[in-house]
Design a protein around this nucleic acid. Sequence first.
DNA 1: CTGAAACGGTACCGATCGGTTCCGTTCCGA
DNA 2: TCGGAACGGAACCGATCGGTACCGTTTCAG
Lengths: 182, 182
Amino acid sequence: MAVNARARLLSTAESLFYANGIHAVGVERILSESGVGRASFYRHFTGKEALVTAVLEGRDARWRAWLSERVAAHGGHPLHVFDALAERFAAQDYRGCVAINTMTEIADRTSPAREMAALHKRRVIELVEQLMRDADIPEPSCRARQFALLMDGAIVTALREGTPDAAWRARSIAESLLAARA
Amino acid sequence: MAVNARARLLSTAESLFYANGIHAVGVERILSESGVGRASFYRHFTGKEALVTAVLEGRDARWRAWLSERVAAHGGHPLHVFDALAERFAAQDYRGCVAINTMTEIADRTSPAREMAALHKRRVIELVEQLMRDADIPEPSCRARQFALLMDGAIVTALREGTPDAAWRARSIAESLLAARA
DNA sequence: CTGAAACGGTACCGATCGGTTCCGTTCCGA
DNA sequence: TCGGAACGGAACCGATCGGTACCGTTTCAG
């Protein structure tokens, strides 16, 4: 019962932040739902802000690993990122992208949380760019940025509509985008 | 000095909510910056939630009026929505779309604020759909939804990058989208 | 001239915010 | 067996949260 305090804090905080937003979740609630003592929390993190950035860091790594895996499972083509997104959008408790939510909720561009969110998006774009290169698609950097814009648009739309439809809409746009050059 | 209390509350709240988010701005700050007495606030609004929805309602109307005006000024073609967005993105204190920010910040789908945000997006789509019809573009409903996804993607991207580039990126995607059918 | 309406200011309410401190327990390696 | 690290629990801090109640002033129509 005594071990894993840090891991429990990260796991509980991630769920609560994702479901309710960062500002809406107090330290009190994270402690009670994780079963971690107040003092233990401040032994592992300098404060709430450090917890937030740690959560975002872990989320970034696991989300990109998940995307890579799902895209590969679908065939490895860049277009398959939208098939992966569709899987996420179908979740009953889908609440959008943590990085986007962080950028809209936290105003200060220089805050560690905002920088983590920006870093995440940059890494996702790099991932998509690599997919472009693997598929021998010309101008992979430009294409990746276009796909990233479509992904973000799909994420926001899916959050609003509550269905995976936006993923297919974005996918068809991406298809016509690739077909235009061919 | 005594009149306009409601208007001052709406104006001040809109600025503060847009710049800092809804949760991050307390009633206290709205009162001090607007110069309105605490009691007067609760005479005009049943509470903070009512103020939020009133702000969103006003924002919706003025934003769509602004978009119509700017699109018309650029020529009236649906593609000109991205030229309008580019103007917004160039603002130094650009903080994205209020409706998107509301949807990401407030988790409860049934809350009045969320419903106002969803209503705003629906109305914007209707506006774009009408632009499609005016330009004799086939399948205006489908096109409008595609454009809306591109607009939301551009807004989120612009918030992240801090430049108007995303508007041009979205515009070029929209162009190839319209060219595909022709 | 009078009275009601609208107003700004302030004191106050319980609750919660993020954060600090101390205490008693549990666990584990030396 | 012993000591220290890690832990959970709770008391406590000043500050702020959204909201209520009361006060004195200003404004304006009847």
